[in-house]
Simulated scan of single mutants.
Amino acid sequence: MKKVFVSLCMAGALVALSSCRSSKDAATLSSISGEWNIIEINGTAVVPAPNQEFPFIGFDTSTGKVFGNSGCNRMMGSFDVNAKPGTIDLGAMASTRMACPDMTLEQNVLSALGQVKKYKKLGKENMALCGSSNRPIIVLQKKAPTVKLSDLSGKWMISEAGGQAIPEGMEKQPFIEFNLAEKRVHGNAGCNLINGGFVADNENSSAISFPQLVSTMMACPDMEVEGRVMKALNEVKSFGKLAGGGIGLYDASNTLVMVLVKK
């Protein structure tokens, strides 16, 4: 069995190698748009740990933003949308700094992305990220939509807003609660109560916004957290599941602006 597995992997690697050199698999900028699971690094299949999702990377080809998760931490960066089609430089990726029990996969992902210079189609659904020598470094598989509006039901604590963690032990811990039947939300921004409706999109399961939020007008000694929470909510345009659990709320450029964890 082992010999068969090795031969299959070698065959896959050879297919990927030829694709990086083949003009018939040339890719346009629009072909990398969206979110992709990272399923192979340097010829080795990525095998997530139990209860762990695949690391993924997303490309917003309208803004040049890159985002994703490398196996533990969120990653973000940018790329030149005006570069020659098929070329891309991901050497300046940044990431959050959370520590996880095993950082091996994350280190492999970030190291591989730092070597990427080109991209090519790989079959009908996959994409190969290649180095300057045309060697395939990473194989991507289109990430199927995995979120639906019902995923938001119930009460969520706001653990992060505007890229910063919400301090623990606040007298009024920020939260938001979704009433899907009435398309309304209720919560606390850290000082004041918030109420209002939300707008979803039947054609885009991950789209959501909060155009009609109102809050009470009580003054608290420290309004900094509340300011970040309200600003983030006003910027939200979409949501998605986060690796390791929780829900991420994103702005129009797919930048994560809020993290929700189940109450």
Rank of each mutant, 00 (worst) to 15 (best):
K183Q: 15
V66I: 13
W156T: 07
C220T: 06
L233T: 03
S159D: 15
F79S: 05
M103H: 02
G162T: 03
A11E: 01
N108K: 15
E171V: 13
C130S: 13
G86L: 11
S215E: 01
L193S: 10
V257I: 00
Q115P: 03
L213W: 01
M223L: 13
A161E: 07
V46N: 01
S23E: 06
I138E: 07
K24D: 04
G162I: 12
L180G: 05
A219S: 15
E35Y: 14
F198C: 07
L193Q: 05
V6Q: 14
M1P: 10
S62W: 02
M93G: 14
E235N: 01
L233W: 00
E177C: 07
K65W: 05
K241G: 09
N134H: 03
E226H: 04
N51I: 06
A189L: 11
G245F: 00
P101R: 03
D222Q: 11
R21I: 04
K117E: 08
N234L: 10
I166S: 11
P174H: 13
I41A: 14
A13D: 03
M230E: 01
E35G: 09
Q107P: 08
L180C: 08
F56C: 12
R74F: 10
G244N: 00
M217A: 14
E235G: 04
D251Y: 00
G123F: 09
F210L: 04
E160N: 15
N82P: 03
E235I: 00
A45N: 06
Q107N: 14
K118M: 10
P50S: 12
M10R: 13
S30D: 14
E224W: 08
T63Q: 14
G163W: 10
R184G: 12
T255W: 09
P145D: 09
N254G: 07
V66K: 04
P136N: 00
I158K: 00
N73C: 14
W156M: 09
S23T: 01
M230F: 05
P85E: 04
D201P: 02
L213K: 00
S23F: 02
A189C: 09
N188T: 07
K183G: 08
M258S: 02
A243W: 00
S30I: 13
G58R: 05
P101M: 06
D89A: 15
I57F: 03
S159Q: 12
P145L: 11
T216N: 09
E226M: 06
I158P: 04
P136F: 00
D25Y: 11
M10S: 05
G68K: 05
A189Q: 05
L110P: 05
A92W: 08
F59M: 04
F198L: 03
T63L: 14
Y250M: 07
N42Y: 11
G187C: 12
K65I: 13
N195E: 07
N254I: 06
E160W: 09
M98C: 02
F210Q: 00
P221Q: 12
K2W: 13
N134F: 12
I138C: 04
L149I: 15
A252Q: 11
A207Y: 08
D102Y: 02
T28E: 14
